[in-house]
Design a protein around this nucleic acid. Structure first.
Lengths: 243, 243
DNA sequence: CCAAAAGTGTTCGCTATACACCCATGA
DNA sequence: TCATGGGTGTATAGCGAACACTTTTGG
């Protein structure tokens, strides 16, 4: 389990201190996934005040009246990690009557994949405690956040096979083995190296960086980057990404 | 375009008459799909009162404080069509700031597939006007409902290929050609009959009814039904439905 | 008989899978 | 020279696409 301590401003929901310019009974919760040494991590924060003080939770907060849902998710993400311009997608809305104590609060969840390069950036801000946790070793969480994470992981496993979003978890330049280990880690399976290489290369989504790894105690691997332009071109022709 | 007129109680959102026991700023909208002569239809209602009187809309309404989201969707569906116990799944939450006039209303959308057998049942209740519309010939709709429907159709096209939900659009007993035409209609493609048959049969999800079509001017086809038990057994073994 | 749809058979090429193998490099 | 991962080759089985074909039934 990784616990890169990270300080950030937490505006997580707390009905006792709800400001006036937000929608009552409606909140945002972000699932921010990162990859650390081939392990899938998720970013959690610790409440400092209110009814949930000292307990771990998903980073989230209220939605302003003049703010689109995705913008609210982006804002909370930016405030918490300093990262912007991410792949950020709506996951699901959770609204069980008793999911929140005393009040009825429905929450819209979003998820984002943070690249390994931005992984440490997250440690920049100042406020509530925040840490990366391995998704297989989570602490106790408030409300239904464990359930939301469980759902998010399942969706991530499905989406990562159908859309080239996994690249967001890697640095700009990566090796084929890194990519393979990413898929193995998220999907929880072993993949055949030669077959994986061929499959990926045949898609034509990777551009060679004409560079090689350095500082490794074995033959240096070629570095590739995700070729977004090629992807867009292929998509227009009705290409379907499948792993 | 089919327009089986259907009367039903509409509790669709209207901020002017919002009762006290519901969550303000949060509504439900249902996408109810049906199949008519091989064409994909969607159920729409016409407002009788309020700011949207006389205009077509998705059947929906407010969420009560003591009511889970899905229960609210079920309730509105039941009130509008008389059908219960349906495949009913959350689609997405729409919350653009300006999607609703004067107020901020976020809506959680659900979708359901109504079987051909229940298709007419929908005409049972009494209240606002309601009709089935071919999804390719929709009237003008209120708010962002056209956008929601567009999104719903795209999701339906994807989900119908990955999960055996299409059967919900057919009667209990159906022929292989009916099933094929369903997929052709939703996916907007032509499929090869022999190959489709083999693919479906090899999955082992269909149980023979030991019955044949009657009243057709050609060789009568065997009738099949979806074998839910076989499906559950296969799912436990890690089976993946793909068309 | 014909039309229309039911249903079967067969070919061909691609792709997934499994696994053996050689290459380059630092310690 | 060995360990480690980089990278290539290849045989095989199975599946999908394409399409020719036979069967059954009502009119």
């Amino acid at each position: 389990m990784s616990e890169n301590s990270l300080s950030s401003f937490s505006s997580h929901v707390d009905p006792a201190t709800t400001p006036d310019n937000v929608i009552k009974a409606l909140s945002i919760d972000n699932l921010i996934f990162g990859l650390d040494h081939g392990q899938l991590d998720i970013l959690l924060i610790k409440h400092r005040e209110g009814i949930s003080a000292g307990r771990w939770a998903l980073p989230g907060g209220w939605i302003r009246y003049d703010e689109n849902l995705r913008d609210a998710a982006s804002r909370h993400l930016l405030e918490l990690t300093g990262v912007s311009d991410l792949y950020l997608e709506q996951l699901k809305t959770f609204g069980r009557v008793d999911r929140f104590p005393n009040e009825r609060v429905v929450t819209v969840s979003y998820y984002a994949l943070v690249s390994a390069e931005d992984y440490d950036l997250a440690a920049g801000h100042n406020a509530a405690d925040a840490c990366w946790f391995n998704v297989r070793a989570l602490p106790e969480l408030i409300y239904d956040h464990a359930e939301i994470i469980q759902y998010g992981i399942e969706q991530l496993q499905q989406n990562v096979r159908r859309r080239p979003i996994g690249f967001n978890l890697l640095p700009e330049k990566f090796t084929l083995l890194q990519l393979q280990e990413l898929y193995e880690s998220i999907l929880g399976t072993k993949l055949d190296k030669p077959n994986f290489r061929r499959k990926i290369m045949k898609m034509g989504l990777l551009a060679s960086c004409d560079e090689k790894q350095t500082g490794v105690a074995h033959r240096a691997a070629k570095l590739y980057r995700f070729d977004e332009q090629a992807y867009n071109t292929l998509m227009e022709k009705g290409f379907s990404f499948e792993i």
